[in-house]
Amino acid sequence: MSQNLMNDLWAAGARVGARLKERGETVAIVESSAGGLISAALLRVPGASAYYMGGGVIYTRTSIREIAGIDMKKLWKEQGIRSSTEPFANLLSESIRTSHETTWGLAETGAAGPGNGYGDPAGHSCHAVTGPSPAVMTLRTGEEDRGDNMIRFAISALGFFEKQLEAPMAA
């Protein structure tokens, strides 16, 4: 694991946390391939309880159902949506935002390494932000290292969220 990446992660969490505190806004997080690192970066900031309302790591169909309230079999059957996609990340983000009654929802889903059963390579991650300025994105690191990818996913998700915090509010 690269110490520089970890330092970048802690810095991203500090910037986002400071901005949320400054704005008096709250966030809930749901993440899979980042393994809790997004939440850890936000919780590392003293006074995080002012903006971090909770979240969880989803890694199985059971955890997706229990934490995000989403039935994967039903979602696939009825809408053709699978994990590790932008539409799925968006559903996760909205679900966690709604259940935690926060200003923002942030979700991450992907394949840190190796790839997943859907054909997504190692280093594939989708992020979604819901709230005043919603957006989705896909990241492909091109890297094979699982640990580094997890950190990169968390840094990317926090950076993406930080950009949305600065974006004009959606109509």
Rank of each mutant, 00 (worst) to 15 (best):
A50H: 07
E162D: 13
G56P: 01
A89E: 04
T60C: 00
P168W: 05
D145Q: 14
K77G: 05
H100Y: 15
I151V: 14
F161N: 02
G54Q: 10
A28C: 01
G117A: 15
T26N: 01
L20T: 03
S125W: 12
Y52P: 00
M6F: 12
E25L: 05
D71E: 10
F161V: 05
I67D: 08
F153C: 11
D148L: 10
G142T: 15
L106F: 13
K77I: 03
F88A: 07
A122N: 07
G142Q: 12
L91N: 01
L5H: 08
V136F: 01
L5C: 00
I58R: 01
G115K: 01
G69W: 12
E101I: 05
L37N: 08
A157P: 10
V136C: 10
P132S: 09
S93D: 10
D120Y: 12
T102D: 03
P46F: 02
E86R: 01
G123H: 04
I96V: 12
I58G: 06
G55K: 09
D71S: 04
T60W: 03
P168E: 14
A68C: 08
K77E: 11
S63K: 00
K74E: 15
M150E: 07
A122W: 15
E166H: 13
E143D: 14
G119S: 11
G69T: 07
G35D: 02
A157Y: 10
T85W: 07
M169T: 14
S133C: 04
I81Y: 00
H127V: 15
K73V: 15
V57P: 00
R23N: 12
F160P: 04
S99K: 14
V16W: 09
G80N: 06
A11I: 01
G13N: 02
A40Q: 01
S156K: 13
A112Y: 11
L5M: 08
M6N: 13
A111R: 10
